[in-house]
Amino acid sequence: MKNTINILLMQLPIGTPSPDNNSPIDFSDPFNIIVFIILPIVAVVLYFYWKKTKHRDNE
């Protein structure tokens, strides 16, 4: 079992972020709110708007 864990750990290159050293997203920072909440919502809305206008152009 220990040998398997060592083999798996050797697969991660040095300097690559791993789930062990990541911190949770801090939503008290306005930048994180914009990047992780507002921009994805805007991207989805714009995608559906684009698909709707593309569908109208085809008719």
Rank of each mutant, 00 (worst) to 15 (best):
M1S: 09
K2V: 11
K2I: 13
T4D: 09
T4A: 11
T4P: 07
T4G: 14
I5K: 10
I5H: 08
I5L: 01
I7R: 15
L8F: 11
L8D: 07
L8P: 11
L9Y: 12
M10P: 08
P13A: 00
P13S: 01
I14N: 02
G15I: 06
G15L: 00
T16P: 06
P17Y: 00
S18Q: 08
S18D: 07
P19G: 02
D20T: 12
D20V: 12
D20E: 14
N22V: 15
S23L: 13
P24A: 07
P24S: 01
P24H: 09
I25W: 05
I25Y: 11
D26I: 10
S28G: 09
P30T: 12
P30S: 02
P30N: 03
F31R: 12
N32A: 05
I33S: 01
I33V: 09
I33E: 00
I34T: 12
L39N: 13
L39K: 09
P40H: 04
P40K: 05
I41V: 15
I41G: 10
V44Y: 01
V45S: 05
L46R: 02
L46H: 10
F48Y: 04
F48S: 02
F48R: 02
Y49F: 15
Y49A: 14
W50G: 03
W50Q: 13
K51M: 05
T53C: 06
K54G: 04
K54T: 14
K54V: 10
K54Q: 01
H55A: 15
H55R: 15
H55C: 11
R56C: 05
R56D: 01
R56P: 06
R56Y: 06
D57T: 13
D57M: 08
D57P: 06
N58C: 12
N58P: 09
